[in-house]
């Protein structure tokens, strides 16, 4: 009972602290902007821990955060092997191939209005479909190892990336293109000096959407068959053995990897598109 009361009191106190902080001038600073969400996150963890202990929830239903952290710390080698198998081999290779191919395709069809008009609606349509369903087929074609995961990722990221890049290549204004024409710039010069730089915000939008899709594709594809390592494999087998602390540890790895991946792309974007209004001020 004590733990439940503690959870409730802690919750109320944290909410009160946060609303006080939000009205305080401190909240305008960088520190305040970081502090409020951190307090919220810590509160969730503390309340989770206290409720699990107080209500004596069985660890096969919901393990407390402390148990997950302990499991995380003791099974670092396994987590690392899974991380390399799923994220580095499966997701990253597929991400690079898929985004690269989509980018090149977009540049290639850029000169033909006909191809664009045909491919864009098809691409938009396919981007909304549950492509992850191709996983069983691709696992059958490319075998159980990371190549099939990489193929699923390619299929998932290709169309969102294609649509964004084509949109981006159309982003420069008629005035700017006319200016290039008065300079008597060739097609390639216009492409490299005007249209590709102008397309970068759109390209990075596609790259950012694709980071999450890549991880989803790589993990879900492992549910359809994988060697005895990998995050999706570990999640599905540990769930079967009721080793939920390990499952949560894998989820923590997925969350960290997902945010880091996204963060890295966002950081590169900041460097490349420093001129864009959304990056200033």
């Amino acid at each position: 009972m004590g733990w439940v009361v503690f959870a409730f009191v802690f919750w109320v106190a944290a909410i009160a602290l946060n609303s006080w902080l939000a009205r305080h001038p401190l909240s305008e600073t960088r520190l305040g902007k970081l502090l409020v969400p951190t307090i919220f996150g810590v509160t969730i963890l503390v309340v989770w821990e206290a409720l699990v202990r107080g209500l004596e929830v069985s660890s096969v239903i919901l393990p407390p955060p402390s148990a997950i952290a302990a499991k995380f710390a003791t099974s670092l080698p396994i987590l690392w092997v899974d991380f390399v198998q799923t994220i580095v081999k499966g997701a990253l290779s597929g991400y690079a191939i898929g985004c690269g191919a989509a980018f090149l395709t977009a540049v290639a069809i850029d000169r033909s209005k006909f191809l664009q008009r045909g491919l864009l609606p098809v691409g938009n349509f396919v981007a909304a479909l549950p492509i992850v369903g191709t996983a069983p087929i691709l696992v059958m074609w490319f075998g159980f190892d990371w190549q099939s995961k990489s193929a699923v990722v390619v299929a998932m990221v290709f169309f969102p990336m294609l649509v964004n890049t084509v949109e981006g290549l159309a982003a420069s204004s008629a005035m700017q293109r006319d200016l290039m024409k008065t300079y008597s710039a060739s097609y390639l010069q216009t492409l490299f000096k005007l249209r590709l730089p102008a397309a970068m915000p759109f390209v990075f939008n596609g790259l950012k959407i694709s980071t999450t899709l890549a991880l989803i594709g790589a993990i879900v594809a492992e549910f359809f068959g994988s060697p005895v390592k990998g995050m999706g494999f570990r999640i599905s087998t540990e769930v079967g053995r009721m080793g939920l602390d390990m499952v949560w540890a894998e989820i923590a790895v997925a969350a960290l990897a997902g945010s880091a991946f996204y963060g890295a792309v966002a950081l590169i974007e900041k460097g490349v598109t420093f001129w864009h209004p959304s990056q200033r001020g």
Binding site: V60, L215, F223, M242, S259, F261
Partner: peptide
Amino acid sequence: TIPIIAIAPMIIVVLNS
């Protein structure tokens, strides 16, 4: 930015149990 779908099997099995 997190592949939330990774928790899907766990939700299913835990609720089943």
